[in-house]
Structures are given as C-alpha cells and as structure tokens.
Amino acid sequence: MNVFRLAGDMSHLLAIIILLLKIWKTRSCAGISGRSQLLFALTYTARYLDLVTNWVSLYNTVMKVFFIATSYATIYLMYLKFKATYDSNHDTFRVEFLLLPVTILALVLNHEFSFMEILWTFSIYLEAVAILPQLFMVSKTGEAESITSHYLFALGSYRLLYIFNWIWRYYTEEYYDLIAIIAGVVQTVLYCDFFYLYFTKVLKGKKLQLPA
C-alpha cells in the first residue's frame, strides 16, 4: 500500500458515494447511464469472486464487499426504486460492442488460462471501457449536472492515481502487471476530454455543456 494506491481507492469510494447520494437526495437518476452501472456491477462481480478463494487483507475484503454491494444498490435504485426518472431514451450505447471484444481479449490475452484468472482479466478490460455508455450519454444530451461531473471526475481520477501507484511499485518492489497497466492507461485516456471540460467549465462554476 502506498499513498497513490490509497488516494486512488479513496477517490473510487468517493465517486460511488457521490453517485448514491445524488440519486438518493434528488430522488432521481436523471443523466446517469444505467448501462454503465450494469457494466460496473459485472466488473466487480467478475473481479471480486476471489473474495472466497484469496485473502489479501481486511482492507481489501471490506473494499471489495463495498464495491460489489454499492454497484447492485445503484442498479436497484436506477431500475426499480427510481425507475421513472431513468433517462433510458438517451442511454442507448450498444454494450455488446464492448462485451464481445472484451470477452475475446480476455480469453486471448491473460496471465493464465484458468477460470478465475480469465474472469479477472475480463473485469480489468471491461472496467477500462465501462464508462463509455455514460460519456456517450453526456455527449448525446450535450450536458451534465455538476454533481454528475464531480462523480465522473472522482471516478476518472481513481485509475489515474493507480497509474502513479504502478510506477511507484515498479521502482520500489519491481512489481508490475502489464494487463492492469495498459487497461488502466486506456481507461484514464478515455476521461481526458472530460477532464479538460471539468477544469475549464465545472470548476469555474459553469455547467458542463458541450458546444452544439
């Protein structure tokens, strides 16, 4: 554990809390992509099945349980409790275009051809692109509420902080995991355009609005 990894995890935690609070306080999930949330739930389920086979630390276990539980809680709020506020006609990204290549890639490019390892690899690749339906939704409607922007900023920062953690681990432990690193870089790059808009608009008190 180093400061970058901890900051990354805290940023990830914060993103989830912001999202849940936004939905709960406003009693609405307007502007949030249910498809991205479904992909995140699939990501955490596939990755954290190792809860039952592999003990790392109490910290890891608590975080894994939290990520799995909150991802399903989000889906429950979006698709059941506040279903009437879900903006489904703007949430039209075809997730099979992500799931199919990610599945094939996981079967071909992995550390070991075993059940748990392929699930882990699948989750790493899927997480990298899982935000695309959300970003697609923002670009389709041309805007995002400030709170949604803060959520996206915290979620995007998390993998960026992990990249610093991997650099740190490479120099201090000689540890590196190429699959996680490359997927993490792709994941972070997908947020670059959003980061730019966040700094130039949202932080100056303006709404995130894309030029027509």
Binding site: V56, M63, F115, A180
Partner: peptide, 10 residues
Amino acid sequence: RFTSVLHDEL
C-alpha cells in the same frame, strides 16, 4: 485449480 496468479489490488 482456479488460478495461481495473486492479485493484491482492487
């Protein structure tokens, strides 16, 4: 055998 690779990150 499930896997021999150990992942200690989240």
